[in-house]
Design a protein around this nucleic acid. Structure first.
Lengths: 221, 221
DNA sequence: GCCAATTTTTAGGCGTATCTAAAAATTATT
DNA sequence: AATAATTTTTAGATACGCCTAAAAATTGGC
């Protein structure tokens, strides 16, 4: 069994591993965990003894396959709870993270799997991130600019390129927000503008807008 | 903010207060928490500094009104989660406690209140214990012998007087179990036997049986 | 390839929550 | 009321997770 702190370190290393494929540095972990590098050294030595990470002095760490499985199960719980909070308890996109950080540490395989069933086996969380299955496997969703999507494709809005207040206010006015599912229902070759559908609402945006919105493609679209 | 351990001590003192109305002894708390009396002394000194209990050396402890409110909010969360687990996630009566012990420490007033709404503002948990409201108020349900119930009254089966295997096997055969709601639909003056209804199933039991089953009366019955 | 800058580790300390063993206070017995 | 039994508290120790300060190893610049 792992303490909440150990689980948080595993999760941090898991997320850092998704970016850099080399060994994860003590400093990188310290930054992510908002602690000091010396504390990280203490913890990675402990995690190494527990065989969940590979660690050699001064060489950074990597998850063992065992450690990766544990980390994935924590991420699975985190994202399932996020879906629950948004879909069943009227939480908004930006309120879920803090609570899910707590709920992800609840230890009960039955709870996790029944929750999964209750929610209808969702494949993505409200931010468009994939939910690992019981074995820890998940689909990597590709992040693209909205402008690159083809007709009929849909995805979840996950970020902006330009964060000027003009642009953010435009998004607000059009009721486009992170976490929304957007479907491309038309593309205008002449000016690159796009016809979009968000929850049965249709409207069009310019090419400039489409080049400033990041989207995660939903599989099978 | 309180640590999980502090919350568990508060809850233990809260439950012990429901029984004995005098000061709660160090030993009683140690027994309930499965720790040593010396550990309890350490903790009650800390809780006393935080003004959640009244404590004078060698004289036991009592919750302050502030402490009682905090304890009630933990019990509220525990029991709401129990309802959730049983009604939404197919947990059985006896599986919920361990998981609820973890879930009760999640800190998010919005979560608690939305959960309450989602569940339709239940007044009892699956064991028939009352769920405190936001202010920490709750109805005390009276525990009675089934034999003392009047015609038309109903309650939740919460315990047995006689735990001989003969008696427990009888309950099993009749499909009577803790947590079940029982309604009295007939009383026979001649031999004191009773006609019961459990989830649309009707059958009768002898007076001897009725004198060995504890029931919590549901308000308004 | 050497020296400086950076990163990482070690050493020693702190607060929490626990324990055991022993001392102090209370309660019960005669 | 004095002593015995019990309860409670204190004292000192341990594991966890964190810190600061200093030492050691690695990396980068010239």
């Amino acid at each position: 069994m792992y303490t909440q702190t150990e689980e948080n370190y595993l999760k941090a290393i898991f997320h850092l591993s998704e970016i850099s494929s080399t060994g994860i540095s003590t400093n990188a972990i310290a930054k992510k965990m908002a602690t000091k590098p010396s504390s990280v050294t203490d913890m990675v030595q402990k995690l190494s003894e527990k065989k969940v990470i590979h660690y050699k002095k001064y060489q950074g760490v990597l998850l063992t396959s065992y450690g990766r499985k544990i980390a994935a199960s924590i991420v699975r719980k985190h994202r399932l709870w996020e879906v629950f909070l948004v879909e069943k308890l009227n939480f908004s996109w930006d309120e879920v993270h803090e609570v899910a950080e707590q709920l992800e540490h609840i230890k009960s395989p039955k709870l996790t799997n029944e929750l999964d069933t209750f929610l209808g086996f969702p494949k993505q969380d409200p931010h468009g991130d994939p939910i690992p299955d019981k074995e820890g496997n998940y689909d990597l969703l590709e992040k693209k600019l909205l402008a690159t999507l083809g007709l009929g494709q849909s995805g979840i809005c996950v970020g902006v390129n330009d964060s000027s207040s003009d642009f953010l206010q435009f998004l607000d006015k059009q009721k486009i927000a992170l976490g929304y599912e957007i479907k491309v229902v038309g593309k205008e070759p002449f000016d690159g503008s796009m016809q979009l559908q968000i929850s049965n609402r249709e409207f069009s945006i310019s090419n400039k807008i489409a080049n400033n919105l990041y989207i995660k493609i939903l599989p099978g679209s």
